Simulated scan of single mutants.
Amino acid sequence: MKKFPIIETERLILSKLEEKDIPFIVEYLQHRIYSDLTSNIPYPYTESDARFWLRMSKDAFENNTGYTFGIRNKEGHIIGAIGLHDREDDKAELGYWLGIPYWNKGYVTEAAKAIVDFGFNELGFHKIFATHFIHNPASGRIMEKIGMEQEAVLIQEIKKDEEYFDLVRYSIFNN
Rank of each mutant, 00 (worst) to 15 (best):
N136G: 08
Y107S: 08
K159W: 01
N73A: 09
I128Q: 05
N40I: 01
T9C: 01
E162F: 13
I134D: 15
R11I: 03
E151C: 10
G70T: 04
Q156S: 15
H85S: 14
I6K: 13
A81I: 01
P44V: 05
L54Q: 04
Q30G: 11
V26K: 06
A111S: 12
S171E: 14
R72P: 01
I155G: 12
I33C: 07
Y96G: 03
V116M: 04
K20V: 07
F24V: 05
N64W: 09
I41T: 03
E151T: 12
E18Q: 15
L154D: 10
W103I: 08
K113C: 08
G80A: 11
L37S: 11
I115P: 03
I7S: 07
D90E: 15
A81D: 01
K74M: 07
W103E: 03
K160S: 06
G66K: 04
K16C: 03
E19F: 00
P137V: 10
Y28E: 00
G124N: 14
E110V: 05
E8S: 05
L14V: 01
I115R: 04
I71E: 03
E8G: 02
N73I: 14
Y28I: 00
N121L: 13
F52E: 15
L14S: 03
L17Y: 06
G140T: 02
I13N: 01
G119W: 03
M143Q: 14
E162Y: 13
I71R: 02
D86A: 08
K3F: 10
H31P: 04
A81Q: 00
N73R: 14
H126Q: 15
N121D: 13
I6Q: 13
L54W: 03
L167A: 14
E75I: 12
K160G: 05
F165Y: 15
K91Q: 13
A60T: 03
N73D: 15
K3I: 15
G95L: 06
A138I: 13
A152V: 12
S48W: 10
T68Q: 09
T131Y: 09
I128A: 06
L123D: 13
K58I: 09
I22G: 06
I33L: 09
P42T: 08
L29M: 06
E47N: 12
E19N: 09
W97S: 04
Y170P: 05
R87N: 12
G66P: 03
K74N: 06
K160Y: 05
K160A: 07
L37F: 11
P5M: 03
